[in-house]
């Protein structure tokens, strides 16, 4: 199955399960979790079912295109189900069958993996899902976001699209994956991967980044002071990405690192609380659909 067919397949599958299919957020972010469709929607009492592809950036994971499994830019397929359905694991396994994985003759394993992101005050319990030893999905029951306990709890399913493709196409490297019949993953991404690795590790202008962080942080305050939660959310993401770039440039010492993480977390906390308050003021409109 081609890389893009995997995406079509998952989109169709989850649409049939009642998810709205969204498109990626047009901002840099480290994971699908940062997309407001997860980040914000998991908060408060309103139900939400969504699935989307999320191109994710992790500057420190860049390897100049030389590592078969690791890149600074990759694709997640993110599903958020709120509240978590009772048969959520069966739904997930159904999506694997639908991709053509014969569950009976392979070793599908749920291996404990509790997840926490101190940067956004988030924590959850769950598993990494293995297919014959390969980690293909992160499965998490969110317990906390922005330091706020969540009720109802959402289930977050994050497929590693490249890894699933490796498995389905029986390949040993991302670069060899078939995007379509005649275009490989390398054709699409190898050159940009090399350039971004160089930029992230060696070129990015540190002074500019430090300055941007402060400015984005200030602009967050500006937005939140006008109750513009969605705008504020994007400034949290911008801060977080700038921090990741600074980290890749080794521009911040270990002790400063903790301080930067705390700064982003504070923004996230403020924003999450503001979002809930705002939805409450609106009377939690989506509760009516229940």
């Amino acid at each position: 199955m081609d890389f893009q067919e995997i995406i079509f397949n998952l989109q169709k599958y989850w649409a049939d399960k009642g998810c709205i299919i969204k498109q990626p957020l047009d901002l840099e972010k480290g994971a699908g979790t940062f997309n407001p469709d997860t980040f914000l929607r998991c908060l408060g009492p309103e139900p939400w079912k969504v699935a989307y592809v999320e191109p994710s950036r992790r500057p420190t994971d860049g390897r100049y295109g030389e590592n078969p499994f690791r890149t600074q830019y990759y694709y997640q397929f993110q599903v958020l189900l709120k509240p978590s359905p009772d048969n959520v694991i069966d739904m997930y396994l159904g999506s694997l069958s639908n991709l053509g994985i014969d569950l009976k003759s392979h070793d599908i394993r749920f291996v404990e993996d509790d997840w926490a992101s101190p940067t956004i005050g988030a924590a959850g319990l769950g598993w990494e899902v293995w297919a014959d030893g390969m980690e293909i999905t992160q499965f998490t029951y969110f317990q906390q976001m922005g330091g706020i306990p969540l009720k109802p709890v959402s289930a977050e399913i994050t497929y590693g699209l490249e890894r699933i493709a490796l498995y389905l196409q029986d390949k040993d490297s991302f670069w060899d994956l078939a995007w379509t019949n005649d275009i490989t993953y390398a054709d699409v991404h190898l050159e940009s991967e090399k350039q971004w690795s160089v930029y992230n590790f060696d070129v990015a202008n540190i002074e500019m980044l430090l300055d941007l962080f402060d400015k984005f942080e200030k602009e967050f305050e500006n937005a939140i002071s006008h109750d513009l939660v969605y705008v504020a959310c994007e400034y949290v993401l911008k801060c977080s990405h700038v921090f990741n770039l600074l980290d890749a440039r080794e521009a911040i010492s270990v002790s400063e690192r903790t301080l930067y993480i705390a700064r982003v977390r504070n923004l996230a906390k403020t924003m999450c609380a503001a979002y809930i308050a705002q939805r409450e003021k609106l009377g939690f409109p989506l509760l009516k659909n229940k």
Binding site: P68, F69, D102, K104, S105, D107, D132, G133, M134
Partner: peptide, 24 residues
């Protein structure tokens, strides 16, 4: 040695998958 959770008629494929992961 890998201990699989199950019984399978496709041991060879399971082994191959695990070999790929360990190699990486």
């Amino acid at each position: 040695i890998v201990v699989q959770n199950g019984v399978s008629d496709k041991n060879r494929e399971i082994i191959k998958g695990n070999e790929r992961v360990l190699k990486a």
